[in-house]
Design a protein around this nucleic acid. Structure first.
Lengths: 110, 110
DNA sequence: CCTTTATTTCCATAATAATCGAAATATGGA
DNA sequence: TCCATATTTCGATTATTATGGAAATAAAGG
C-alpha cells in the first residue's frame, strides 16, 4: 500500500463513530450490516452515518453491496491487512518492536 | 490501549507531513532527530513542523528530550506497538486475516 | 549581560471535516 | 402506478485542523 492510501485509511479510522462502525462490521463478519442496523446499534442519525460510511468506503476499508431495498456493508479485510502491513513495516524498521504478533496474541484475549 | 487513545494515535498519523515525520523518526531509531534536522529533511517551515510535532507528542507516538540548545524527538515504539495490537485485534476478530506476520514479513523486504 | 542558534508559541487565515433535518432516489410489492 | 421502506444526497451550520510569518523563550558561550 502506498503512503497516500495509508493516510486515507488512517483518517478513515481516526474518528470515534467511524472506528465504531468499522469494529461493528468486523464483528459482523461476512454477513455484514445494513445502515439501518448500524443506526440502531450505534444510535446515530441516518444522514450522519451515511456520511461516515461514505468516508470508510472511499478509503477501501469497507465495501457496499445492494440487497433489495437494503445495502450491506462489510469490512474489507484485505485493505485492513495492507494497512497493518505498512504500519508494521514503518514502526519496526530496524527495531525488535511489534513484529510481536505472539506477544500481542498473548494479552487481552477477548 | 483504549478506544480514545487509538483514535488520537490514528489521527496523529493520518496526515501526510506527520506520517513522514514519524517514519523519519522510526528510521532514525534511538538517536532520534532534532526539529532542525527534520526541517531540512522534509523542507517544512519550522512553525508548521512544531505544530505537527506537538500533535504527535500529544498522541504519545513520539517523545521529546532536551539536549542543550536542541530538542531530540524519538519514535515511541511501545505506543505504536499498542496501536498495532489494538488494530490487529479489531481487524481479525474471528477472521484468519492479518495475524499474518509471516506473510507481511515476506514481502517488500526493503 | 549580550549574542547567536534552536525551537516554540502566538495569531490570523484558509481549508477541511462533522452534524443532521429535509428533500431526493431506489427498490419491492400491492 | 402508487405506496411504504431503506438509504443517500443536499445544504446550511458549526467545529476542528493546518499553514506559516513574526515575536517570544531557552540555552550555550563569550
Amino acid at each position: 500500500m502506498e503512503e497516500n492510501d495509508v493516510v486515507t485509511c488512517l483518517a478513515a479510522l481516526a474518528q470515534p463513530m467511524r472506528l465504531q462502525v468499522f469494529r461493528a462490521l468486523v464483528v459482523a463478519g461476512p454477513d455484514g450490516l445494513t445502515p439501518g442496523a448500524l443506526v440502531e446499534a450505534l444510535d446515530v442519525p441516518a444522514a450522519t452515518l451515511s456520511f461516515h460510511l461514505k468516508e470508510l468506503t472511499r478509503s477501501g476499508l469497507i465495501s457496499q453491496e445492494r440487497d433489495g431495498r437494503s445495502l450491506i456493508y462489510r469490512a474489507a479485510f484485505e485493505q485492513m491487512d495492507g494497512l497493518l502491513t505498512y504500519l508494521t513495516y514503518n514502526c519496526c524498521e530496524g527495531k525488535a518492536c511489534a513484529v510481536a504478533q505472539p506477544k500481542s496474541a498473548a494479552r487481552k484475549p477477548r
